[in-house]
């Protein structure tokens, strides 16, 4: 990237459902919950979980059952 104004080649992924946790331990805690883990398509990084398409409500229900109060952005 020698040219400081050059456009960056990038791919957009739209309509992605993600869970961002405060720390990696919390992400582990969520993945240890069997019902929740089955809704997680993968772990993008230590603190970022990728949710299967169309499973947002199930994830929210389960998080609330666990006593969490997730902040939902864009619902």
């Amino acid at each position: 990237m020698n040219n400081p104004t050059a456009r960056l080649p990038a791919k957009l992924h739209r309509r992605v459902c993600l869970v961002l946790t405060e720390d990696a331990v919390l992400a582990e805690e969520l993945l240890a919950r069997k019902k929740l883990a089955s809704e997680v398509a993968g772990r993008l990084s230590e603190k970022v979980l990728l949710i299967r398409p169309g499973r947002l409500d199930a994830v929210l229900d389960e998080l609330r059952k666990m006593g969490h109060t997730p902040q939902v952005v864009g619902k």
């Binding site: 309509r15 992605v16 459902c17 405060e22 929210l60 969490h68 902040q71 939902v72 952005v73 864009g74």
Partner: peptide
């Protein structure tokens, strides 16, 4: 502590 992006 937990933020969910429903359609990012």
């Amino acid at each position: 502590r937990i933020t969910i992006f429903s359609s990012a």
